[in-house]
């Protein structure tokens, strides 16, 4: 299994769009930063045919240190969740969009 990084995505932008390598990397960073700052503001980010990133508020609950068994309160916090779109799920299973629609 290979792991893609920023370099691979920047290279794809470089070859698709014809910007310089530097500018391709900078634009990738701008996209990630835009998404991150929207999420930081608590705003969901919806990318059609890919999925939705959203921030969920979690209430306080009692947790336990698994090693010592000591009870500790887990404070209320905000967590990020990603909900993949049907299109993304279908692509990952090697299906076309219409096959996915048949199953839905």
């Amino acid at each position: 299994m290979n792991t893609l990084t920023r370099a691979n995505l920047a290279e794809a932008i470089y070859s698709q769009v014809g910007l310089s390598r530097n500018e391709s990397a900078a634009l990738l960073e701008s996209v990630l930063e835009r998404v991150a700052s929207a999420l930081e503001a608590g705003e969901p980010v919806k990318i059609s045919a890919f999925g939705t990133f959203m921030v969920r508020q979690k209430g306080q609950r009692v947790g336990r240190n698994p090693k010592t068994g000591v009870e500790v309160p887990i404070l209320p916090r905000r967590v990020l969740s990603f909900r993949p779109s049907q299109v993304l799920k279908a692509r990952i299973n090697g299906q076309t969009e219409s096959e996915a629609a048949d199953q839905a």
Partner: peptide, 22 residues
């Protein structure tokens, strides 16, 4: 095209069984 390329590359990587780490 830039935005489409980013999400398409991630999707294609997952479809190949690869992971994407940013």
């Amino acid at each position: 095209l830039i935005v489409a390329t980013i999400f398409e590359e991630i999707t294609a990587a997952l479809a190949r069984g690869d992971r994407v780490e940013l």
